[in-house]
Structures are given as structure tokens and as C-alpha cells.
């Protein structure tokens, strides 16, 4: 029996003015897999993730994610779909400084349209080793702790797709391994398909065949 791919992209192109920043004739990612998108800066990695998250409409082509036609949907539909189905971890962790860790996660639940579930928040933080940080504000966290909180926020609503944009670029080798292990564990725990976009060659070995963009090798 063949499983339908989670992501299916065809003839995908994106231009900024006259410059082509992304060209992807055909690409598929299986459900539950871990995929690496590798390429130098400006190769279109972030553009691809933005399209997969429904933040950006490609100039041309078609993308289906978990059966949802991102390219044919309205902005409102994409927003609603993204809130439910996508988790996102960025290099800049983007925790809201006015809120505590727990409030950051509660806001993510609200915006995802799910009931506030404090037990789920505490449980997720505990699994990522930052249970004691719930009442702290982002500036009181170390980089490692902030990254764990950002991952917790991304998987809190059990997304089908977990996108990570340069999650290890600013980390040393030990932290890099730890961060990837966390992402993989969190994706596995929430049943999400993990896509990591990076120019960081150190992590290449942890994944299968990567999607190479912009002449990456």
C-alpha cells in the first residue's frame, strides 16, 4: 500500500521582480519523514518554507500539503490552515518579550484556534526540559532554553508539518546536535513531518537525501 506524500510540489517558481529566487520542478515529502533543504543564503530556502507555510503565494506552480492546495487557497483560508497544521521554528526565535513563556504558548494555542490547555503547555515544556521556565520572560532565558520554548510553541498544537528555518546556524556543534535531537523528538512526539532548511553542512549527515537549492552540494 502506498502512502500519499504530505507535500507535493510541481513546477514551483517564485520571482522577486525579475529575479527568480526559487525554481522547483517537482518535489515530494512523505508523511512523517524528516527532510533537509540545503542551500546557501539567497538560494530560496526561506521562500520555500514561506510558501509551504502559506505565508507566500508562489509566482507559479502548485503545492499540496496534507491534501490542502496552498496555491489555490485564499489568504484567509491559508491563515486558518496554517494555524492548525503548521509549526514553525526560526533562527531568530521570536518569543514575545512582553509575555511569559507560558503566555507565549497560550497565545499560540489561541491563535491556532484551540482551547487553552495549560496541562498540555506544562507537559510540552517538561518534555523539552524547560518545565521550570513557564513563568519567566524571554529575556530571562538562555539561548538554549529559548530555543526549546520556541520548539514547544511550534509543536504545541500537534501540527502535521513542522518547519525549521536555520535552527542550528548560530549554535556550536554540541548545541547543534542537541537542537536537532529536540526537533526530531518533538516532531515524532506530535506526529509531524519535519522539514529543516539550512546552509549548515554539519547536519547533513542526520538526514537522508536532501533537497539541494541554489547549487548546494
Amino acid at each position: 500500500m502506498t502512502t500519499a506524500p504530505l507535500i507535493s510540489a510541481e513546477a514551483l517558481t517564485h520571482r522577486y521582480a525579475d529575479r527568480v529566487v526559487l525554481e522547483l520542478p517537482r518535489w515530494q515529502v512523505d508523511t512523517g519523514g524528516h527532510t533537509l533543504v540545503l542551500g546557501p543564503s539567497g538560494s530560496g530556502k526561506s521562500t520555500l518554507l514561506s510558501i509551504l507555510a502559506g505565508l507566500l503565494s508562489p509566482t507559479s506552480g502548485k503545492v499540496l500539503v496534507d491534501g490542502f492546495d496552498i496555491t489555490g487557497a485564499s489568504q484567509r483560508e491559508r491563515d486558518a490552515w496554517r494555524a492548525r497544521k503548521v509549526g514553525f521554528v526560526m533562527q531568530r526565535l521570536h518569543l514575545i518579550s512582553a509575555l511569559t513563556v507560558e503566555q507565549n504558548l497560550a497565545l499560540a494555542q489561541t491563535l491556532a484556534g484551540v482551547e487553552r490547555d495549560t496541562a498540555r503547555i506544562r507537559d510540552t515544556l517538561a518534555k523539552l526540559g524547560v518545565a521550570g521556565k513557564a513563568g519567566q520572560r524571554p529575556h530571562e532565558l538562555s539561548v538554549g532554553e529559548a530555543q526549546r520554548v520556541a520548539i514547544a510553541r511550534a509543536v504545541l498544537h500537534r501540527p502535521a508539518l513542522l518547519l525549521a528555518d536555520e535552527p542550528t546556524s548560530a549554535l556550536d556543534d554540541a548545541s547543534c546536535d542537541a537542537a536537532l535531537a529536540l526537533l526530531e523528538a518533538a516532531a515524532a512526539e506530535s506526529g509531524a513531518t519535519l522539514i529543516v532548511a539550512t546552509h549548515d553542512q554539519r547536519i547533513k549527515s542526520r538526514f537522508g537525501e536532501p533537497l539541494l537549492l541554489g547549487g548546494a552540494a
Partner: peptide
């Protein structure tokens, strides 16, 4: 600006 973009990413209309 980043907070607002983040909220859009998390699903805020």
C-alpha cells in the same frame, strides 16, 4: 514588527 509577523505566522488574521 516581528511580534506581529509572528502572530500572523501563528494564525492571527
Amino acid at each position: 514588527e516581528t511580534d506581529l509577523a509572528l502572530m500572523r505566522l501563528l494564525g492571527a488574521s
